[in-house]
């Protein structure tokens, strides 16, 4: 029984093996792009909307509102990254209902890749908003003693991000596989439905946590900086509460 889609190799070219993770990721990417292109090639700017365009607008607006709610900032700059995280994970998990499909998010390689993306995006956004000195300063706050702990926290939350998504999706796949071998009818369907729900929730959690990390990097120390406008836009205590727990 293949637990990870990494193990299902379609083609091998020397050191590069074309496994199911990459192939199904391409499938998800193709689907998302195709749907987007089909809907957005004839956009209506009037008050009469096609149903599909309306759906996409609701989706994008919903993501924007969530980002704004979490970050208390203008969502424009975060939307492509955070929105893509959510849409990719959600679509990858949603396709689990298709027989023969294996969610790429059930591979630790994929979730690690996404977590690394977040791990890199956080300092990029932080430096872009605050400058390198201001951003790096927050690793030594409140004292120099906290520097190793801050670094450990940074790495550990990235690992937690990767493992959380991987564990949830992989466990769902594994449970369904085990149940199929034990009771082929009814129960696997229920578990698959549950897996869909879990997949959606994990997509939301992953995206929101990514946003929280980025928001903490872009606004955590703004209260100490001289930028009055930025300080007025942010709510530091709330950020502290949100960033501290690494919850599942």
């Amino acid at each position: 029984m293949t637990i990870s889609p990494d193990g299902l190799i379609f083609q091998q070219w020397g050191w590069f093996s074309l496994n199911a993770t990459i192939v199904y990721t391409w499938l998800v990417m193709a689907l998302l792009t195709l749907i987007s292109w089909l809907v957005t090639r004839r956009m209506s700017t009037g008050t009469e909307l096609p149903a599909w365009q309306n759906l996409l607008e609701v989706l994008v607006t919903g993501i924007r509102d969530q980002i704004r709610q979490v970050s208390q900032q203008n969502p424009g700059r975060y939307l492509p990254f955070v929105g893509s995280l959510f849409l990719y994970i959600a679509m990858a998990n949603l396709l689990n209902i298709v027989p023969g499909y294996m969610a790429p998010t059930g591979s630790l390689s994929t979730t690690t890749a996404l977590a690394i993306c977040v791990f890199i995006a956080v300092p990029i956004y932080g430096i872009a908003y605050q400058g390198p000195v201001n951003y790096l300063k927050h690793y030594v706050k409140p004292t120099w003693l906290m520097l190793p702990f801050n670094i450990i926290g940074e790495i550990s939350r990235t690992i937690a991000l990767a493992v959380r998504l991987y564990g949830n999706i992989m466990s769902g796949t594994v449970i369904v596989a085990i149940l199929i071998s034990l009771t082929p009818y009814f129960f696997p369907v229920v578990m698959a439905l549950l897996g869909l729900l879990t997949g959606m929730i994990q997509a939301y959690i992953f995206a929101v946590l990514a946003m929280v990390y980025i928001a903490s990097a872009t606004s955590l120390h703004s209260g100490e900086s001289d930028d009055e406008q930025q300080s007025s836009l942010t709510d530091t205590p709330e950020k502290d509460n949100r960033t501290s727990p690494n919850t599942d």
Binding site: S4, D6, W15, F16, S17, N19, T21, I22, T25, W26, M29, S84, Y88, P104, S107, L108, S109, T110, T112, A113, L114, I116, C117
Partner: peptide, 15 residues
């Protein structure tokens, strides 16, 4: 529970 670093890099590019 294995990490295929080639796949990871490919997924990063994909993403």
């Amino acid at each position: 529970m294995q990490i295929d670093w080639i796949t990871v890099s490919a997924q990063i590019v994909n993403f």
